[in-house]
Computed example of a mutant assay.
Amino acid sequence: MANILEPEYQNSVPPSIIVFDLNDDSIVRRYELPQDQFVQNKSLFANIAIEDNDCSRIFAYLADISSPGLVVYSWKDNDSWLVNHNYFNIDPLAGEFNVSGIVFHWSDGIFGMGLSEIKPDGSSDLYFHPMTSTDEFVVSTKFLKDKALSQKSNGEFRHLGSRGPKGQSSVSFLDKKTGVLFYALINLNAIACWKTTNPRYTMQSQGRVYMSNVTMVFPSDIKVDSDDNMWVLSNRLPTFMYKGFNASEVNFRLLTAPVKDAINGTACDAKGIVTPEMKAKMKNHLDSINPPKSTPKAGQSGSEGINSRLNAVLILLAVLNLLMMH
């Protein structure tokens, strides 16, 4: 097995997708990537996202962080293709990291990925970011799953926004039930979140789930299970790489929390977000309780001001009512 921590490591076998049957640990399928979809002795596939709503049409998305690209694999066709885009590349201004006082420079491309709930047309939204970046992006899998179309980018990729200073992120995972995207902030030893129904991706619209300079040093994986529990693995990798491994210390930790508790009180809590659907409900609600304005009669000056204040009160009450029902 190649040692990826060595500067001149060698790939002994081509990168492969291996599918196991967890009932008996047998290998169901092994698929080797074609040579034109990776760079020998350079490519590093550090993350994979699976779109598996239909067993006959499963797709896998493999992120190559060292030769930034996205390999799309079709289970049905047992075929794969490489997708390239500038958004997979690093931001050179975000290359300096500081994890618990250890300063280093990395150049890792597309890393974190999270798939949304399936849409009526059978596609999902793939949220992604390079590790050496503070920005988040999204693209529809409808585009990625079309082998021919995916080679002709025409505005399908969108830039959502920035996580702000020290906002470099490694892994991410999207909880389909809540629509919340969880991601690791490796410089801050923290897990953060953003609700995908929020129309804005800003520092203000993102929430801080958990932060610890002891237990959350370099969070390296995030998952949400079928019981709505979030799991986070931290492994202190920069400490191991640049200062050495101390077996007398706790280096690996597995932390968990119910999703509802993790996002409670954050910007990702559904009660704190007015989505487009809620705006439509508010409009319908206001239309039903706010009668059309009548033409003011002579001598009734000031009534417009009273009506405006009354409308403002009605709007506020409607908003509060809908937020409580959401």
Rank of each mutant, 00 (worst) to 15 (best):
V71R: 07
E51A: 10
R57M: 13
V71P: 05
F88I: 05
D54V: 07
H129Y: 06
N98L: 00
N86I: 09
D52M: 00
E51S: 14
N98D: 03
G101A: 07
M113W: 06
V99Q: 00
K145M: 12
Y127N: 01
L126Q: 05
F88K: 02
F104R: 04
I102D: 05
G95T: 10
N47F: 04
M113R: 10
I48S: 08
N78M: 14
D52R: 02
V138E: 05
D121E: 04
G95R: 12
V83H: 03
D125I: 12
W81N: 07
I48Q: 08
I50P: 04
N86D: 15
A148Q: 15
S124R: 13
S100A: 10
W106L: 09
N89H: 13
I110A: 12
D135M: 12
W81E: 04
I110D: 12
S80P: 09
F143R: 04
S140E: 07
P92Q: 08
P120S: 11
A46V: 10
D64I: 03
V72T: 13
W81H: 12
I90E: 15
A63S: 15
K76W: 13
L70R: 08
V71H: 03
H85P: 06
S116G: 09
S66Y: 15
D146S: 14
W106H: 11
N98H: 01
P92G: 09
T132M: 00
L93A: 15
S74Q: 06
I110W: 05
I90C: 08
W106G: 05
P130D: 02
V83P: 01
E96D: 14
W81R: 07
N53R: 15
D125E: 14
P130T: 00
I90R: 10
S56Y: 11
G69V: 04
I48E: 08
A46K: 15
M131T: 15
G95L: 09
V83E: 07
L82H: 15
D77P: 09
I48D: 08
S140F: 01
S80F: 09
S80W: 13
E96I: 00
D146Q: 08
A49P: 01
V72E: 09
S56M: 08
N89S: 09
S107G: 11
Y73W: 13
S140A: 00
S140C: 00
L115P: 07
N84Q: 11
I50E: 08
L126G: 05
H105V: 12
L70W: 04
G69N: 11
D146I: 04
A94M: 11
I48F: 01
L144W: 02
A46M: 14
W75V: 12
I102T: 10
K76V: 15
S56G: 13
A63N: 03
F137I: 01
N89K: 14
V71L: 04
D91R: 07
N84P: 01
N89Q: 08
L115S: 08
H85R: 14
V83R: 06
G69E: 09
E136H: 06
W106P: 03
L144H: 05
G109Q: 12
E96F: 00
M131G: 00
V138R: 07
L82K: 11
S80L: 04
S56H: 13
V99F: 01
D91H: 06
I102Y: 03
H85A: 13
T134W: 02
D91Q: 11
